[in-house]
Amino acid sequence: MIRTARLTLRPVRPEEDLGAMHAIMREPRAMAYWSTPPHESEGETAEWLANMAAIQPCEGEDFIVEADGQVIGKAGFYRFPDLGYMFDPAVWGQGYAREAVGAVVERGFAVHRLPRIQADVDPRNTASMKLLERLGFAETHRQARTWLVGDTWCDSVYFALTREQWGQRTA
């Protein structure tokens, strides 16, 4: 568990988190740049949450993000060192993503001793790219047609941050 000034990042509780996460994952704006289309059924979200719960500690660490006791998204590593996050559009623009993702990055370097963290972002997702840049990530390369989401091929912009770079930023 991670606590920040305004947030709690905790392990997933699949049954308890199903309603709130399905509400987010069925929302087209929340899923616009995700690797799958919006979830049509709670069963899709239940399977996704079960997979999140099944992550082995040596392979990754993913968190449900709460603000004032309400689930607002997720942030973490489905597989080390790949960073991923998603938030309810109702809370966009309030700094929650920066707070949560920054805490996850700090933990990745401090606790898991990751030498490098990387992220894959849809180039249309300018807000996510700006978030990563504010946290010190730098673009490493781009690739076309990396994700087939529904019937649409999407491209990727790859970002990375090393432990040394993070240490210099936080020193």
Rank of each mutant, 00 (worst) to 15 (best):
A127K: 01
F87L: 13
E61S: 05
A46N: 10
A160S: 08
E47T: 04
D68Y: 07
F109D: 05
R10A: 10
V104K: 02
A75D: 08
S156M: 00
P37K: 08
M1F: 09
A110Y: 05
F77P: 05
E27N: 15
M52C: 14
F77E: 03
T162K: 02
R142H: 00
R98E: 14
R29K: 14
A67P: 00
A171R: 03
M129Q: 15
W34Y: 09
T140C: 04
R6E: 05
E99M: 03
I55E: 11
E66A: 14
T170I: 04
R142S: 11
W48H: 03
Q94F: 04
R163A: 00
P38I: 01
A103F: 04
P81T: 02
V105N: 03
R169C: 02
G84A: 11
F137L: 07
T146K: 04
P37W: 01
A103I: 05
Q143Y: 03
K74I: 13
D155H: 07
G19Y: 00
P14C: 06
G19V: 01
P57L: 00
V121A: 10
Q143I: 05
Y96T: 00
E40G: 13
M86C: 15
N125R: 03
R79S: 10
E99K: 05
D120R: 14
D155A: 12
V65E: 12
W48K: 13
G60K: 05
T152W: 02
A144C: 12
V104F: 02
Q94K: 11
L114E: 01
Y33D: 02
F63H: 12
D122M: 09
K74R: 15
E16N: 02
A97P: 03
E47Q: 12
E42V: 10
H22D: 06
Q143E: 11
V157F: 09
R6P: 08
T170D: 01
T4R: 04
G19F: 10
D155S: 10
